[in-house]
């Protein structure tokens, strides 16, 4: 346990001292504020002035109320929310290869397993914080612009859906971690993350029959944003998602423990 705590502390220091942490906070905060601005533009079309792009986007929101805003936030957690943890894990693990500091972590009294687990923990907490930031600032934006239709039940129901979607989205990041470690860099995992995002949309639109079995589509099914006619997640959906996540964790641990590290 001492090894894990030490490794976790060190990883935390590395994250807190990095520009990446603050960069991701600003990015997710900006998205939340922009969502609020979009709702404001939908409520008051006159404020977009002559901007056709903003007017067009705002006009897509026919009912600028809390129900629509929560739906937008859920959409965000399923799209940007899946890219966020991917970027964080690519950085936390990939930087050791790009900065060539990996060799400093391989022959220490702290086991490699503890270092890997500490890194996973940091990525999970960081990602969760980003998605909470998105939600929290989103709610604040909605309150500031006085959206209509707030009810306690709506808030609790949508918050539960958001939390579940966020956690299910985040736990899939170890697959990206494994690819980061195997490729020893940033390019391949970034490409894979984008591919997964596109594939998930494709699965929803083109092959709705397999959505319950495609791990990255499961959070979308759970959130309810796919609509009332979309398939419901089954027990097997959660099992597939869990196996995918655990495969990433175990694969990464095995890679660190046994693969030649250059």
């Amino acid at each position: 346990m001492k090894g894990f705590i030490t490794a976790f502390y060190v990883e935390m220091i590395k994250a807190l001292k990095s520009k990446m942490l603050w960069g991701t906070f600003i990015f997710f905060g900006f998205i939340a504020v922009m969502l609020g601005f979009l709702m404001l533009a939908a409520k008051h079309p006159e404020i977009t002035g002559k901007s056709e792009v903003l007017s067009m986007k705002a006009s897509m929101i026919s009912n600028p109320n809390w129900a629509t805003f929560f739906w937008l936030l859920l959409q965000m957690v399923l799209t940007v929310g899946s890219i966020g943890p991917a970027i964080v894990t690519i950085w936390v693990f990939g930087r050791e290869y790009s900065d060539r500091t990996i060799k400093d972590l391989l022959a220490l009294p702290v086991s490699r397993m503890n270092i890997v687990l500490a890194k996973f923990s940091i990525v999970f907490i960081w990602s969760l914080f980003l998605l909470f930031l998105l939600y929290g600032l989103g709610i604040v934006s909605g309150l500031i612009i006085h959206l209509d239709g707030w009810t306690r039940d709506l808030f609790i129901q949508k918050s539960q859906a958001y939390l579940l979607s966020a956690i299910l989205t985040i736990v899939l990041f170890p697959v990206i971690t494994l690819i980061t470690c195997i490729s020893r860099g940033y390019l391949l995992p970034v490409g894979l993350s984008v591919l997964i995002l596109i594939s998930t949309q494709f699965v929803f639109l083109g092959m709705p029959g397999i959505t319950p079995y495609f791990p990255w589509a499961v959070p979308g099914l759970c959130s309810g944003v796919a609509g009332p006619f979309s398939p419901k997640p089954e027990v097997i959906s959660y099992i597939i998602l869990g196996i995918t996540s655990i495969s990433g964790v175990v694969g990464t641990a095995i890679w660190w423990q046994h693969a030649d590290q250059h």
């Binding site: 030490t6 490794a7 060190v10 220091i13 590395k14 060539r100 060799k103």
Partner: peptide, 27 residues
Amino acid sequence: GYLVEVPYSYPDLTVRENLEIVRRLRF
């Protein structure tokens, strides 16, 4: 104790911070 090839360190951390990390990882 070891040094393999070019010794890279965490670029955004200072010399002291880099050594502090090693101190902790070596208990």
